[in-house]
Amino acid sequence: MGAIYVDQTRNRALINDDACVECGTCYRGMSTEHLNPVMVRAVRKAAKFLRFRFEPEPDVCPTGAFEMNELEMPRLIRQIFSDPVVEHKSTGIKGRGTEEVKTNDVSLRVNSGEVGYTIEFGRPGVGVRFSDIQEMTRVLAKEGITFEKNNPITHLMIDTRTGDLRTDIINEKILSAIVEIKTTIKEVERVLEIVEQVGERIDTVTAVGISTRCEDGEDKVLAPLLDKLGYYYSRAKTNMGLGRITNQIVLKHAEAVAP
């Protein structure tokens, strides 16, 4: 994000609170020493004066200077969507993610003939404001597309028919967020077109994941269509089909409703 910078007048490192997405990398990701700050600054000053290159480990904070702020809403939303080790209560999954098709063998979230999309904003490494995400959700809603219910962004919508997000968070900046939708195969071309068109209007990057259920271990529908439409894809996340329902209460329910 480039939120940390050295203020030239004060000669101290500061954090630009508006740019900071509260991902916690500076605090949690850095190793620390606990050296005396006065001594560290003196060494740096001497090295600078003598034109020596001061070359500490880039991932070590010599003074352990970072502390996490106590966050409250709406700023807390930054941490929820930016720090992967913070759990999002609505999904039970850490960070901004959802189960997507990773558990499709158990949940059948995307079934035969359906196509799932994960439209991720701000990724990689650029960040996004909720107002930009709303640009997309509004257009998708206008097209009559329904949003995945068990998704953190859907939970922040005040109306899923319009795609409007909560007003208190609309200007907050986060590292990334995923909008999840599902359509039939016929709508793939239109949806991907929309994502590209709206992407031009919002000041961030988008990364789309597109998924389907395989038939007899093969995807004979989506991949050929992507090829035909000229979309490049080299990498995939593949669900190997080893999951099954094992929770007792769900199993009993399934048995009870079985014909």
């Binding site: 997507e100 098709v101 991907l192 990364a207 994941g209 395989c214 979309y231 995939a236 669900n239 089909g241």
Partner: peptide, 11 residues
């Protein structure tokens, strides 16, 4: 394979 999710190029 049960399901597959393809990564499209960054926009």
């Amino acid at each position: 394979r049960h399901s597959v999710e393809y990564a499209l190029a960054f926009n």
